[in-house]
Design a protein around this nucleic acid. Structure first.
Lengths: 330, 330
DNA sequence: TTGAAAGCGCTAACAA
DNA sequence: TTGTTAGCGCTTTCAA
């Protein structure tokens, strides 16, 4: 039972300074003489001292904790954000408390509990939570700094917005360049406000190419495989079906792919398919899916850094169009 | 700026009792008269009081936090464990602090930091961290309760073990029943101690069916797609290649699938393929992969519950063999 | 069954 | 530039 962890008092005694001086060194405050600082740091090192988070939080104004409530994740997306954010936190002496929450009122309660009991110094939100007005309002009311990834600009907190419109447009231009004129689209989840830009990007590319937008080629989607299957089934049953289908995320694109396989359609010769997200499954699909990569881990890192008062990394907004065999004629 | 959160003192005043009595109600201690308890609960409700975690931690012996350092996750696995554990925590007034860590010495340092600064009431570990002796030793030295998921029994903490051997055996029996005699195997990652049982299950099924184990059919694997590709390439280049390949996880099986597609082999007619994990990608692959489902979310839930002193849920150990089109003759 | 006092390990405000 | 004092919001110990 080795339970005796050294406290700040132990460090102070060993370094021969006051408690407060140790605190100053720990918090990198100004006005500490270098010799004193070195002495304190040596004592910290020698004792293996680690500050007690709870004590710092109780006495001070910070908790050194970032809260990350998330909902209904694509697991790849969530873990990437989580890894990025947790890494940024660790580098700065912070920790991340993540909690899965539902979208309804019980989720609201969970977020409120998280904030009021843990008292995080900031809240990180990703879609779809990032665009729920009640959630934003709750965080505002509890007066906690907020950064939302891929959220619409709102009147509270900072939002890291993404050029979904531009990349979506680029992807559709690629399909047009491959010779497609009838291009189906499976819409983003209606709750994901920022992802709606993927639809306007689609429209814009068609218009610029002088192709009329055929509304029957636009199907609803909910970011899951099943809605991809439904959409593909509807599209491929049209009298004049599309020769390419662009789904607003990979899961739906994989649903489209499944339908194409079931109908024994050659891909991309008879039907080209593209997604959005660069999920692991999109890489592993057969044929591999054309898709768009976001720097998700970096988004998490940047969001956490912003919560801690730093400026956003400009690399954060760089998408990348990944053209793979599902749309490229051999 | 609504920053004034009610404290326990406010509740005490409103209920007309002492601070300590409120504390007793909060902690469900005995010897509180029902009328007093009701009065306090009403005051808590009326004020919307939430206990301050840091204060409870500093004053008491618990932190109401479970630590979950994880490494190199399959993201689906990690999020499932995370969701299960976080849900269990929330139901009990706890929170989960999760942190990605590396396998080397910097990872050890990160875990030590996590424990000494956050002071969690328990640590949850999954493979491969769950089987690193230094990590177990570190947690033991810091005197924190430990539960490991899918870890080998060790001399500290509790381990939730999994019948990998049995299910693996069942899967190979299925392949044999489908008429296969030459069955290739892509081994588990050598760091995942418990997963090694998937190899013994494979061997055992062959032996029981009176089939000689051909060591050339057993290839090394590291749980990633690339090792599946290498293994499949090696196996399919043999003079007498196997008619079925069982990979010890889905990612490797998807690598095998890719090679089969590239060689234009009909699946499962020319080559049957099976994996392990029921990853989303295994469902979405073409053809869908035969695999094994573990109740991962439940594992996380059970692990957290065990850390909080509860008994394991017996459902936790139930695997399920999912036979899909990649091995089943139409 | 309830309450009073002390103090957890640190930071804030002030004084030196 | 450093130290002193008070106190964060709760639990612990002990007394009533």
């Amino acid at each position: 039972l080795e339970n005796d962890v050294p406290t700040m008092a132990d460090v102070a005694e060993r370094a021969g300074v006051s408690l407060k001086t140790v605190s100053r060194v720990l918090n990198k405050e100004d006005h500490v003489r270098p010799t004193v600082q070195a002495k304190v740091e040596a004592a910290i090192e020698a004792l293996g001292y680690r500050p007690n988070l709870a004590a710092r939080q109780l006495a001070g104004s910070r908790s050194f904790i970032i809260g990350y409530p998330f909902n209904n994740p694509s697991s790849a997306y969530i873990t990437d954000v989580l890894m990025g954010a947790a890494t940024a936190c660790r580098d700065r002496g912070y920790h991340l408390v993540s909690e899965p929450v539902s979208l309804g009122s019980s989720g609201m309660e969970a977020i409120e509990r998280l904030i009021t009991t843990v008292r995080p110094d900031g809240i990180l939100l990703t879609p779809p939570l990032a665009d729920v007005p009640e959630v934003i309002e709750l965080v505002r009311r509890l007066n906690v700094p907020l950064v939302r990834i891929a959220g619409m600009p709102a009147d509270y907190g900072q939002a890291i917005t993404i050029d979904d419109h531009g990349v979506s447009e680029e992807l559709v231009r690629h399909l047009i360049a491959e010779g497609h004129r009838k291009i189906g689209f499976v819409r983003p989840h209606p709750d994901h406000a920022i992802a709606q830009a993927r639809l306007t990007g689609y429209r814009s590319a068609l218009v610029h190419a002088g192709i009329d937008v055929d509304e029957t080629l636009i199907q609803p989607g909910y970011f899951d495989v099943d809605s991809g299957i439904s959409a593909a089934t509807a599209l491929l049953s049209l009298d004049r079906p599309p020769t390419a289908i662009f789904a607003a995320n990979d899961d739906m694109a994989l649903g489209v792919l499944q339908v194409a396989h079931q109908r024994n359609l050659a891909i991309p010769q008879q039907i080209a398919i593209a997604g959005f997200d660069d999920s692991p499954a999109s890489r592993l699909a057969w044929p591999p899916l054309t898709t768009v990569r976001q720097p998700t881990k970096l988004l998490g890192e940047t969001a956490a850094a912003m919560l801690l008062g730093e400026k956003p990394n400009p690399e954060t907004n760089k998408h990348q169009l990944l053209i793979r065999a599902s749309t490229r004629q051999p």
